[in-house]
Each structure stands twice: as structure tokens, then as C-alpha cells.
Design a protein around this nucleic acid. Structure first.
Lengths: 195, 195
DNA sequence: ACGAAACTACCTACTAGTAGGTAGGAAAGA
DNA sequence: TCTTTCCTACCTACTAGTAGGTAGTTTCGT
């Protein structure tokens, strides 16, 4: 039912790897062309401009996050376990180097220099993630499974910040395990009387 | 007593602004030349290569941090007040847009794509900052002015991560006040029984 | 008159993007 | 069924502009 052509997906995947490594200006059409084995003009066939490419990439990234978080919420009703699974997901991604950084976290860092079409998509991701975390935390408080010291929205922002900062630290000290090490006490502070 | 020539400093200052805005690949010698009103060839006189320029910039950034933190420790012996002052400093910088992001935090995000000479300097900054924070936290625990739930080194890493992540969030939501909002509960969790 | 700091003028390599064409398959009309 | 037409996917070959960097010269302060 779906198009069998996966070149566009290959381009997006390569672009994601490059962006995660070095940001928006850290790669070129030539770089992508080389790793997937086509000419750079062919990339323009799938994505007329670099802005189109990255915009599509980030938009899809957000869509995947929305559906992914939805599934996660369905499977795991308890907030503490939900937060643990979320950070565990990233810990895994960083550990096996499959997705060693969040695309949007990286792009956000260079937001003032980003094309506006891309910037708006990045901002949307942050808004979604922070909103989702706020919801999870709020529910946890209502269930009595989480203890917080500020408003859920603020706690959510702080949690998200720590996740992104922990990615940065893991990268900076070249130690993938650093992410999990940093997140452990952060989770502990939200979850009362665990194991 | 100091050299009256400030062009090299002007170049470094301009480069810092550009890097803070868009990272290592987000600016060119031409960009710097334009804003400070010289030709780009003249920049090569002061900094033969871009690597030299950014390496010098990051090295000086670390030196300034080392002396700055030293002074801070001399002036403020109490750990809670020290952490508050440190985050307050960044809150101020972000608020007045004078230094809306940490140079090394930004460069760390694109670390895999950075020239190795620059990467090593960035890593040194992270090591210093995390070590300094660990010392501050350890002393606070000994003084009984801080309560922690993990080893001082881990708490320090988590604190640093939250600071960097909060910068990112402030940038992403385009609201400078977000930084202080995020840091408030983070500080509160470390400081027991405060007003 | 000497060196530092700036300049003009240039280089090569690479950037995103375009023009125009080709190979092959699907569709559609007689 | 054959042929024309269209489409997708890719190609070669090119453009204008920008990247970092160099060579050689002039300007300026002491």
C-alpha cells in the first residue's frame, strides 16, 4: 500500500544522523549524497531545498514523538514508571549510539541561526514535550505516586531541562553511561519511597 | 600596561556572539569582518585559522571561568548562596541578552563535528565546571547547608545538566525568564528549610 | 626605519541550487 | 496489442555565491 521507494526515507535518516552529530550547518547535500550513494541533485528531487528537508525531518520527529508518547501512556498508566521508561529509552539510545542526541535539542541550541520554517517546528516539539511531561507529572501527583515542590508545568520544564542537559554531559565527557547516572537522582527526587 | 590593540579582542567577542547564536559552523570570517569593520584577511593576521580563533576563545572562556569561580568562592563561603549566585549570574546574562547561552554548552552539542583541538578545550570546560560544582556541593553537605540524595559528583553533574538544559528551554520557548523558573525548584531541592 | 596591523586581490574547495536529459515503468487510447 | 504519453527517479553538467586561507603591499605608530 505504501510506496516502495525508500530513498526519501534514507535521505531523512542520513540527515538525522548528520544533524545529531553537528547541527543544521554541520552537513551538506554532498555529505548525504555520498553516504547513501546517489548524486546530490537527486536529493533536490526529493527535497527541493535544505529547509524542506530539515522541516520535514523535524515535523516527522514530532509526529513520531506524539504517537510514541501516546502508546507509552496506554501501556504504562503509572507516572513513575512512565518517567523511568522515558529516560530509559534515551539511556538506551545513547548507550547503543543509535540516536545519541535529540534532534530538536540540538537544533534548539542553534535556534537563532535557524531558518524560521525549521525554528517553528523545533519550538513545537519543545511545547509538546513539556506539555506531555506536565500532564504525566500532574497525574502522578493526583495518584499520589509523585511528590513535587513546584507547579507541574515547572517541574516538567525542569525535568526536560535535566534530560537535555544530561545528553549534553554524556556527549561532553564521552561517556554514554553518564546520562543514566545523572537521571537517577532526578527521578528519585520525584518518586517517594521507592524500592 | 595592557596592549591598546583591541582588535583581537573585538574579533573574539564577535566570534563568541556568533557561536552562541549558531555554533561553530554558523559563522564565517566574512561575518566577523563585517560586524567589526575590517576585511576578513585581517582576521587571519590575528588568528591564522578558524580553529586557532575558536580554540583561543574557548581556552580564554575556561580561564575566565576558573578565575571567576575562584573569586566567587572567596566572596561567598556558603554553598547555598554560592549556587544561587551562580545561577543568578546566568539568569542575568540570559535576561539582558548579553550572553544568552554558554559557549561551551553550545559547542558541546556539536562535539562530534568539532575540530579535535576545539573539542578538547570544550571537554576541559565541562570537567572543570563539574568538578567545581562537586566541590561546592560537598562542602555544603559537610557544612550541613545542603541535602543531597546521591554522591556530590553525581549531584553536581545533575545540577550542571539542569543549568544547561534550562538555557536550552529558555531559548526554545523564547522566554528568558524560563531559565530562572526552572532553576528555582532545582535549587530548592538542594537547600533544606529555606525561608 | 622598523614592526604591527591593516589592506587589495586573489586562490581553491565547497555550498545550495538549477538546467536539461535519460532510463524505465504505468497508464491510456486506438 | 502496440504505441504514445506521462511520471518517478535519477543522472551529468552547470551556476552564483561563500567558505577558509594566502600573497604581497600599504599604512601607521613609535
Amino acid at each position: 500500500m505504501n510506496k516502495p521507494s525508500n530513498t526519501a526515507d534514507d535521505i531523512l535518516a542520513a540527515a538525522r544522523r548528520f544533524i545529531v552529530a553537528g547541527g543544521y550547518n554541520g552537513f551538506s547535500y554532498a555529505d548525504i549524497a555520498e553516504v547513501i550513494g546517489i548524486r546530490k541533485a537527486s536529493i533536490h528531487h526529493h527535497f527541493p531545498s535544505k529547509v524542506d528537508l530539515v522541516q520535514t525531518l523535524v515535523r516527522r520527529y514530532l509526529e513520531d514523538a506524539v504517537t510514541g508518547m501516546g502508546e507509552l501512556e496506554r501501556k504504562i498508566p503509572q507516572s513513575p514508571e512512565l518517567l523511568r521508561t522515558y529516560t530509559g529509552y534515551w539511556a538506551q539510545c545513547i548507550e547503543d549510539a543509535s540516536r545519541p542526541f535529540c534532534v530538536c535539542a540540538l537544533l534548539a541550541s542553534e535556534l537563532p541561526a535557524l531558518p524560521p520554517e525549521v525554528a517553528v517546528e523545533v519550538r513545537a516539539y519543545f511545547q509538546f514535550l513539556s506539555g506531555w511531561l506536565a500532564g504525566v507529572i500532574e497525574r502522578g501527583v493526583e495518584q499520589g505516586t509523585l511528590t513535587i515542590s513546584a507547579a507541574p508545568r515547572v517541574e516538567a520544564e525542569a525535568f526536560m531541562a535535566t534530560v537535555h542537559g544530561a545528553m549534553l554531559s554524556a556527549r561532553a565527557c564521552g561517556d554514554a553511561a553518564a546520562f543514566a547516572t545523572i537521571m537517577a537522582p532526578t527521578l528519585q527526587k520525584l518518586i517517594p519511597a521507592t524500592d
